[in-house]
């Protein structure tokens, strides 16, 4: 049994070299599909990252009536923090608000002795999901003791729009990519199998079991899948780093607004996913195509 395993594995490896054109065509197909997949994943990761960064910066600020006790403020903070759409809620005292503001004023702030922002203590509320901003504001309007709610509706709406577009485009692209991949791969396999049909036939006539016929093809498929997925991953890794460096040096002004996801954070998911998809395509592609010809 061990002998059979190594023999069929050896045949699988030999098949890769025996059918050079088929190997090249399959490799090119799988690599091309996974290359596009990789680019797409990298873009989605970065867009999501940028959206998330911006989203985290969007806050709702709540000011209180002058007669409100610190106890009530703590109570409100507690209530707000418990809400599911709230990611973080910070209390900013009047002193902290002045300290922050005076930093911006620089020298101009030096004339003040008393805190001119007395009574400006507030809650800074950050959301998990900016599309829920309206909901939160609706709730805050019902809470007693609140004087004023500052919100950034435009930013919130824009971000919600961007996220929706990213989601639709993601789903659309994945669907399209899947359809194209299946078409290309089934085409390649069909061309390959017409060459192999005879070989499978001969094997069956000589008395080879289904396993014996199938194993080399499946090994071959797995090997092609592995190589075919490794190539785009390696190429994309270098391309990604190059693009990263290019954007940072040539579009330095963007660095203040946008941060990119480091390659390692993308490839820790992309590499195993690509390998899995490649091996999966190789395995199932060969497994099912051979099956059609086994009943001889």
């Amino acid at each position: 049994m061990i002998n059979t395993f190594f023999y069929t594995l050896g045949q699988g490896v030999k098949n890769v070299f025996r059918n050079k054109w088929f190997t090249m065509a399959s490799l090119a197909t799988i690599s091309a599909c996974l290359f596009v997949f990789g680019i797409f994943v990298a873009v989605v990761f970065n867009v999501n990252h940028i959206v998330k960064t911006v989203e985290e910066g969007v806050s709702v600020t709540v000011y209180f009536n002058e007669d409100v006790e610190q106890e009530r403020i703590d109570q409100i903070r507690e209530l707000v923090t418990r809400r599911p759409e709230v990611y973080r809620c910070d209390f900013i005292s009047a002193d902290e608000a002045w300290a922050e503001f005076s930093k911006k004023l620089g020298e101009n702030a030096e004339g003040f002795i008393e805190n001119p922002l007395e009574g400006s203590e507030n809650l800074q509320i950050y959301l998990n999901d900016v599309s829920k901003q309206g909901e939160l504001v609706g709730y805050l309007e019902t809470v007693e003791g609140i004087r004023k709610i500052n919100k950034s509706e435009l930013t919130a709406n824009t971000l919600t729009g961007v996220k929706a577009v990213v989601t639709y485009v993601s789903v659309g692209m994945i669907g399209l990519l899947l359809a194209v991949s299946i078409f290309l791969i089934s085409n390649t396999v069909t061309i390959g199998i017409s060459v192999r049909k005879e070989e499978i036939n001969i094997m069956k006539y000589v008395g080879a079991t289904d396993f014996f016929v199938r194993a080399p093809f499946v090994f071959e498929g797995i090997i092609i899948g592995l190589i075919g997925s490794a190539i785009p991953v390696v190429v994309l890794y270098y391309l990604y780093n190059a693009a990263f460096a290019f954007l940072q040096s040539n579009f330095a002004f963007l660095n203040d607004f946008i941060s990119y996801v480091p390659a390692s954070d993308v490839f820790i998911y992309l590499a195993p996913a690509s390998l899995l998809i490649g091996v999966g395509i190789g395995f199932f592609g060969s497994f099912f195509t051979v099956r059609k010809h086994l009943h001889v």
Binding site: K204, Y205, V206, G207, A208, T209, D210, F212, H295
Partner: peptide, 9 residues
């Protein structure tokens, strides 16, 4: 079907 291979030998 599974016995066919052995038979053909």
């Amino acid at each position: 079907h599974a016995q066919v291979a052995k038979f053909r030998r």
